[in-house]
């Protein structure tokens, strides 16, 4: 576990989430085993499940004594990077994945650890693009409702979405997404220093309860 690096998160994060959703959503079916002759690379197959189990361990570690601080933070940073990396101005869902990831972090990783929590809050509250996006999409939807031209709709969607995100970054005083991300990392470091105070940590934990009540 201690040797599990950022690269491993990148490699196994998507299989982990996809596998969970498949495991969660599947329907009940009769368990009818068949025997077939096949050539299977069992090492490769087992490695896939073992790799993803490392991420499960990172999630589960929050409730154990041997909580792995470094791994949890690596996971969160990766989650953030993935959200930006997969940002696609044409696909509405990619943006909403970003806010979803913050909620996931809060639920699965950070709920008992103040320093991780603050990271989650930072994602949820500082990245308040969602609210701005909602307003823009409401306006966009009005235009789409009045249009029958699909190409035009996609063009409008692209322009609004991309432009609004760029505007958000600029409004925050940054010229690029990378610059924005670096600034966020610095802020998180500052938060971490603040969190060394036990009193503040307890306050944040109280905030966690109130946040959950609002959901």
């Amino acid at each position: 576990m201690n040797n599990f690096e950022m690269d491993d998160f990148q490699k196994y994060h998507v299989p982990y989430e996809n596998s969970y959703m498949r495991s969660y959503r599947s329907q009940k079916e009769p368990y009818n085993v068949q025997i077939k002759k096949k050539h299977v690379d069992w090492r490769k197959v087992t490695a896939l499940i073992l790799g993803t189990s490392m991420i499960a361990t990172a999630f589960a570690s929050r409730i154990k004594d041997n909580y792995d601080h470094t791994t949890a933070h690596a996971y969160i940073k990766q989650h953030m990077n993935t959200s930006f990396k997969h940002y696609d101005p044409i696909d509405n869902n990619t943006y909403y994945d970003m806010s979803k990831c913050a909620r996931d972090i809060l639920n699965y990783v950070g709920s008992k650890k103040p320093d991780v929590l603050i990271y989650s809050y930072y994602l949820v509250f500082d990245i308040d693009v969602e609210r701005q996006m909602d307003a823009l999409f409401t306006e966009l939807q009005k235009q789409i409702d009045n249009s029958t031209d699909n190409e035009h709709i996609m063009a409008m969607k692209h322009n609004y979405y991309y432009a609004s995100f760029q505007e958000y970054i600029k409004a925050k005083g940054y010229s690029t997404i990378d610059e924005y991300k670096k600034a966020m990392d610095q802020k998180v470091l500052a938060y971490k220093e603040m969190m060394e105070s036990k009193e503040v940590a307890e306050e944040i934990l109280e905030m966690d309860d109130s946040w959950e009540m609002r959901q």
Partner: peptide, 28 residues
Amino acid sequence: DEFLIQKIILEQDQEYLTNISSIEEYNK
């Protein structure tokens, strides 16, 4: 990279596969 985990349950002498009910169960 596609795999999943299911549970085996017994109902009226027939075995069925059914879904995992939570992320905690999946992690476990």
